[in-house]
Simulated scan of single mutants.
Amino acid sequence: MSAALPHIPRKSLLPLAPGLALVAGVTALAFALRLLPGLHALSPVIVAILLGMALANLRAPSDAAQPGIAFAGKGLMRGAVALLGAQITLGDLGAFGIGGGVAILTAVALTLPASHAIGRRLGVAPDLSLLIATGSAVCGASAIAGANGVIRARVEVVSYAVATITLWGTLGLFAIPLAAGLLGLTPVQAGLWAGLSLHEVAQAVGAGFAGGETSGQAALAMKLGRVLMLAGVIAVLARSHGAVAKGPAGEKGPGVPGFLWVFIALVLLNSAGLLPLPLRETTALITPVLLSAALAGLGLTTRFDRLRSLGLAPLAQGGAAFGLIAALGLAAALWIG
């Protein structure tokens, strides 16, 4: 009798429903607020993360909502970035030439060891210090997850590192566009600064596109260049720890993320003129919604009490790391742009 029952996939989408419904509500509200008088100039991606943070700290989402929120903060972000490839050509990515590559290498190569040294000087545990340094230099939570495949830190250490990175990156999401305006930076310079400085892809892209299409594409180019450094950083960490970068079950650790390959494929197709106009127009409409939903998910996971319970030294390290990479990013943006 039981053999006749339909097979139910173990990875059902049903557990994601409560969290995705919450994220959808926050995203819809973010877009709706722009219809109010005086608020039309606000970017929905910034409003979405503000609303998410407010909700998370006023009343934490239920446990049932956590899987969907996590999926939004990571999965939807990756999907949005992948679709952005349909709006970009190789000419856009290569517009910054050798200077862009030097800026990316410099930002990662200086920030990671300097941040780790600051953490150790502040008395932060070695594994936590290294995770914060890696997340700050490369690509936030994704870099922390990849590095932990080698470091194998405790769960609470990883959670604290992610919380620290999320907080400083979120502050930077608002601070960099504001500071760029005050400093009189061009849209390209503002985008370069965001892409070279902010931790998460969604944060960098959100800050970049808050300044317009040109700024957003510059931010994306620089940020994805930093993401491409992840595989090399993990390889160096594996060698320094005398281990092979493997996951808990022995599988290989993450290299270049899959969404980046999709992005590259779309860029190549678009550069060759093989993407039809209706497809490019559709992705241009969908992408801002996905980005807003991704940032709403990140906001809904930002809890300030997690930082307070584990002390201030790692938080200070994260702040110092962000200050360093932001300074390097600004100098590079002024040089390249």
Score class of each variant (00 low, 15 high):
residue 180 A to W: 06
residue 156 E to N: 10
residue 16 L to P: 14
residue 270 N to L: 00
residue 13 L to H: 14
residue 124 V to E: 14
residue 114 A to D: 06
residue 336 I to V: 12
residue 86 A to R: 00
residue 171 L to I: 11
residue 211 G to C: 04
residue 167 L to G: 11
residue 74 K to W: 03
residue 120 R to E: 11
residue 122 L to W: 15
residue 276 P to F: 06
residue 216 G to H: 05
residue 102 V to W: 10
residue 317 Q to Y: 06
residue 38 G to T: 03
residue 115 S to Q: 04
residue 34 R to K: 12
residue 250 G to E: 08
residue 57 N to R: 04
residue 128 L to F: 12
residue 115 S to C: 15
residue 17 A to L: 09
residue 53 M to L: 15
residue 155 V to Y: 08
residue 124 V to F: 08
residue 301 T to C: 06
residue 92 D to F: 15
residue 137 A to Q: 11
residue 142 S to H: 09
residue 49 I to Y: 02
residue 27 T to N: 09
residue 290 L to P: 00
residue 51 L to Q: 09
residue 52 G to P: 08
residue 47 V to Y: 00
residue 165 I to H: 08
residue 52 G to M: 06
residue 52 G to F: 01
residue 97 G to I: 07
residue 146 G to Y: 01
residue 217 Q to N: 14
residue 280 R to E: 04
residue 199 H to N: 15
residue 188 V to Y: 09
residue 45 V to M: 13
residue 157 V to K: 14
residue 289 V to A: 03
residue 214 T to G: 14
residue 217 Q to I: 15
residue 68 G to P: 13
residue 231 A to V: 12
residue 40 H to A: 15
residue 125 A to V: 07
residue 219 A to F: 05
residue 22 L to E: 10
residue 225 G to P: 10
residue 321 A to C: 06
residue 267 V to M: 02
residue 165 I to Q: 05
residue 283 T to Y: 00
residue 16 L to I: 01
residue 286 I to T: 01
residue 76 L to P: 14
residue 117 A to W: 14
residue 250 G to A: 10
residue 100 G to L: 12
residue 101 G to Q: 12
residue 152 R to S: 11
residue 95 A to R: 13
residue 144 I to M: 15
residue 137 A to D: 11
